[in-house]
Nucleic acid binder design. Sequence first.
DNA 1: GTGAAAGCGCTAACAC
DNA 2: GTGTTAGCGCTTTCAC
Lengths: 345, 345
Amino acid sequence: MVGRIAASSAPRSADVARAAGVSRKTVSRVLNNEPYVSDELRRRVLDAAVELGYRLNHAARALASGRNRSIGVVALGTAGYGTASLLVGIEKAVRDAGYALRVVNTEDGDPEGISGAVMSLLEQGVDGVVVSEPVVEGEVSLRVDVPVLFLGAPPAFTAARTLSVGVGAHALARAATDHLLDLGHTTVHHVAGPRRWYASKDRIEGWRAALAARGAPEQPVVEGDWSPASGYAAGRELAADSSVTAVFVAGDEMAVGLIHALREAGRRVPEDISVVGFDGNPVFAYVTPPLTTARQPFDAAAREGIRLLVHAIEEPETDLPPAGEPPVELVVRGSTAPPPSYGVG
Amino acid sequence: MVGRIAASSAPRSADVARAAGVSRKTVSRVLNNEPYVSDELRRRVLDAAVELGYRLNHAARALASGRNRSIGVVALGTAGYGTASLLVGIEKAVRDAGYALRVVNTEDGDPEGISGAVMSLLEQGVDGVVVSEPVVEGEVSLRVDVPVLFLGAPPAFTAARTLSVGVGAHALARAATDHLLDLGHTTVHHVAGPRRWYASKDRIEGWRAALAARGAPEQPVVEGDWSPASGYAAGRELAADSSVTAVFVAGDEMAVGLIHALREAGRRVPEDISVVGFDGNPVFAYVTPPLTTARQPFDAAAREGIRLLVHAIEEPETDLPPAGEPPVELVVRGSTAPPPSYGVG
DNA sequence: GTGAAAGCGCTAACAC
DNA sequence: GTGTTAGCGCTTTCAC
């Protein structure tokens, strides 16, 4: 048998062990921060590893240990502020927890797409899965043996261990509607996202609850698709109805489109019609009029969700009580005002 | 030796082989779409795999074969439209190529942060790395034995095999400036991103080239940080200078902030001052005035970059000529107009 | 066309 | 505290 002469091949843990004059197992212990290694050996191993430019092979570790130290996320393939903010928050929380992140987008968060994405993540070997803003609850039943976190919605499919962390959308929608009602509007119209999205339903319900609590008349929901163009279309529709004085829109971008249509139709915002958006993208503080909006706690939700998920991965036995919902934050800017006085407009 | 009784443990390729009545190697061949397997056996193996709910173990495959079928991306940890669009494009291209995606963000794309991120990706076992919009060229020298693609900038560090795909920022900046000059403005001011970003430099140079080509006087660059707030600050500064009639801003969000400041200061856009943004976020078609902007070809750049990267991974021998730059796309909306007539304003 | 043996780089259980 | 022995589940020779 001829020895491998490949001088430039990457060093393995055996090389580090040899260089440090210890066994491979000791190297393994040091690399995994396990106890029962003398400080002296630990030093020697670490020095040797740096010296050789050694890099641990995660695949081998995963195969031998059964643990991957990685988390997979299923996200929506859009560059929208909400989706992107959530992903950034997830990545940071995952990295801080010492895990690697694998991402699979679904073009359209339907149950089949999501289950396919989860499947591919499972093949890749993840210790946990995050489903970011699943669109609908479905009867997809996957054999998933790792914990699954649903972010921004209740579980969208059955799995052995599911967790779920909301963004407080119901309370946020209610606060947005209450703000308009407090200003003196007799009722509030609502432009929602697509019905099949859980996020849409949640906001609709919050809006409805606020209306019901004040005995305000409920209005038919106008349905958009999150795009500014759909908000614009909704705006044209609502501008035609002279009784409209206040609108709660389920997304900032739709709200901007709506305001544009309203102004084109000669309706002033906020003098004639008040508008509240949803999300909290800071850039809309600089449009005319600056957009009043319900800020979603993307970061806090991601952090809290990953904390729960990692706990479920590392200590499957003990239940960790979820922390309370993050505070409701309504950002009042210039797109809301009291309704026009009767008999004056 | 007592057989494992764990009835619920996940099936392995040996189980599939047994169920199909073939050897493990044949299963492997079928799963990897290798030739020299009879259709009949192929069918039997596939059926058995589905029957047992078999899922391939990527870690084991990576360990045995040395290939991971995964690509790592180093991105900026921001939810901005540009970064997010690029990531969405990368994910889709990677998935279409049959690879898995691993993501590591850097809080701040400095050389140390990037090299740390690349290192962690390498440990995870990726076949290629994408560095999305690195901030600066640095003297970071990593021992990277897989191909590295720099997206939106030239190579930021040395590696064995580097590729780079631009977004045509220079040409885009030049087109934006030319548009303003064509309208009759005698010169164009520029609000840039942070100097240490490659993206900022590229745009500055395109702007400068356009000015120089017409013999237009060059103006000092105002530096922002991509945020709308920094655009607002730049707007206050520029509003104080009555000679300003046209501004090319290196990012849409800064442009929106700038316009807000201009209008607050009593300068009309576009009547008094024309503004062009950069990126192409569609929502800004719905603000007042609708923003004229240079649209970055995020998707095309990501697709082309990943095509090159995958080629470099799979056929390291042959060089693939990069396709031409994508077409320059200037979206003219309402924030630009001819300069105010002399003696009238 | 198909199968048997060996081993990828690491960690698990055990011995010392 | 430390080292030894056996695999993790797959793909790779190479024989048939």
